[in-house]
């Protein structure tokens, strides 16, 4: 009898032990949200190929700060009349709001690269789905281990952060842009981008969601980058992208948040 119990216990232990790696793997490489509904929700029954022909995505495997995860999407070809990327959509499977951002590019973008910082709430795939001018969809994905990025406290309530609310600035890599080619530029937006998930269990006060929903960058009136944002964008949204000026002109940005507040900024570009 005693041996039987020991055997049962042993079997149970072994089962548990052998089950662990499976469980970890299932948790680690979970495609279920995507296959069960996310894909259909955002792209219907359109085919999406994971072919690495249009874009690559780079994100840290282990996110040191889940509220500030750098994500880079790199295009495989320049924006030309015959071949270009129209739009890249970023979906974070296990975030409370999986839709994280979308980025629309034009020929004036020069190159459809985008780098930004996002909140990641769980161990999850981050997917970038690019739509090329031929209407095809190409997906690249990266797995990120993070937790709590969306409910992590926001330090953007300080006096200096309030004072610069709505301020924006452009930063260039070079002093002067090169005409006729894609030039990198960075847009910094001072905005707390509050997720609305910082629920206060003690006072029952919720910091209401307050985040940037629209960013429109144009050069001389022609769109360069159009962003739809959501709560996944980190505090002080930051975008690195390209624009291809043919002559001197003005970069212009308009942003809008979910409370209807609007801000804009200009930056003259003199080659």
């Amino acid at each position: 009898m005693k041996t039987l119990i020991i055997r049962i216990l042993l079997t149970l232990t072994l089962l548990t032990l052998s089950g662990l790696p499976l469980l970890a793997q299932a948790e680690g490489e979970d495609e279920s949200q995507w296959t069960s509904h996310l894909k259909n929700q955002f792209f219907g029954d359109r085919p999406i190929s994971e072919d690495h022909e249009a874009i690559e995505i780079t994100a840290p495997y282990r996110a040191e700060d889940p509220a500030l995860v750098p994500i880079q999407i790199t295009s495989k070809f320049p924006q030309t009349g015959t071949q270009f990327i129209k739009k890249v959509t970023v979906i974070i499977d296990h975030n409370p709001t999986p839709f994280s951002a979308s980025f629309e590019f034009t020929l004036e973008s020069g190159k459809a690269d985008i780098a930004t910082r996002m909140r990641v709430n769980a161990y999850t795939y981050i997917r970038a789905i690019a739509e090329t001018n031929d209407g095809k969809l190409h997906m690249a994905k990266a797995f990120v281990k993070a937790s709590g990025g969306c409910s992590a406290p926001i330090g953007a309530d300080s006096e200096d952060a309030k004072a610069r609310f709505g301020k924006m600035k452009f930063k260039f890599d070079q002093d002067k842009p090169t005409l006729g080619s894609a030039n990198p530029v960075q847009l910094l937006i001072s905005h707390p981008n509050i997720t609305g998930m910082q629920m206060d269990q003690i006072s029952r006060i919720i910091q209401p969601a307050h985040y940037v929903t629209d960013v429109k960058v144009s050069f001389d009136g022609k769109p360069v980058l159009t962003v739809k944002g959501d709560i996944a964008l980190s505090t002080d949204p930051n975008f690195r992208f390209y624009f291809a000026p043919e002559k001197a002109g003005e970069l212009h940005v308009d942003i809008k948040d979910n409370l209807g507040q609007q801000f804009s900024a200009n930056q003259s570009v003199n080659p």
Binding site: G148, I154, D200
Partner: peptide, 17 residues
């Protein structure tokens, strides 16, 4: 107090995990 309140929901999950 405000910091505790802000962080509690996040900390509760982290404490468990």
């Amino acid at each position: 107090a405000a910091a505790m309140a802000m962080r509690a929901p996040y900390y509760l999950v982290q404490a468990k995990d």
